[in-house]
Simulated assay, not measured.
Amino acid sequence: MAIVIHGIRNCDTMKRARAWLDARGIDYRFHDYKTAGITPETLRDWAGQVGWEALLNRAGTTFRKLPEAEKAGLDETRALALLAAHPSAIKRPVLDHDGALLVGFSPEKYAEAFG
């Protein structure tokens, strides 16, 4: 089973998700998209699975600090370009579990996925 958890190392939500996986002995690979980057192709694939709206962390500091012109009138193309340029604006974590994605951390959703 291939599990990759994508996010930012020091994010509190990421820490909770990784602790949840660690406590259950679930093997995974961590991809820090702030330091290692994220490809536009990966973002398009994710958006095709869960929708670009689910990927965009509108509540996060990175998004809130962007100029209004960058945030206004977002559609998929503009949102994915914004996420590629500002990976910290991607909702965290994005967990890829054999090709199925879970966006955000919820102990209940993780338990269901790994039940």
Rank of each mutant, 00 (worst) to 15 (best):
I3Y: 05
I3C: 08
I5H: 04
H6V: 00
R9I: 08
N10F: 02
C11Q: 07
C11G: 09
T13V: 06
R16I: 03
R16T: 11
A17R: 04
R18I: 10
A19L: 06
L21M: 12
D22Y: 10
D22M: 07
D22A: 14
A23E: 15
A23S: 15
G25T: 12
F30D: 07
F30Y: 11
D32P: 08
Y33L: 09
K34H: 06
K34Y: 07
K34M: 04
A36M: 08
A36H: 09
G37M: 05
T39H: 10
T39W: 12
P40G: 15
P40N: 03
T42L: 13
L43S: 03
R44Q: 13
R44D: 13
D45G: 12
W46L: 06
W46F: 11
V50G: 06
G51N: 04
G51L: 05
G51H: 13
G51V: 10
W52V: 04
W52M: 02
E53I: 10
A54L: 04
T61E: 09
F63I: 01
K65R: 15
P67K: 06
K71R: 15
K71I: 04
A72C: 02
A72H: 01
G73C: 10
G73A: 08
G73V: 07
G73T: 10
L74I: 09
L74R: 01
L74E: 01
L74W: 07
E76Q: 14
T77P: 00
A79Y: 09
A79S: 11
L80Q: 01
A81V: 01
A81S: 11
A81H: 06
L82I: 02
L83G: 05
L83W: 11
A84T: 02
A84V: 00
A85K: 12
H86G: 01
P87N: 03
S88K: 08
S88G: 15
I90C: 07
K91C: 00
K91Q: 10
K91F: 14
K91E: 02
P93V: 01
V94S: 01
V94T: 05
V94P: 03
H97S: 03
L101S: 07
L102P: 02
G104P: 06
P107Y: 00
E108P: 01
K109M: 06
Y110M: 13
A111V: 09
A111I: 04
E112W: 02
E112H: 07
E112G: 15
F114N: 11
G115C: 05
G115E: 10
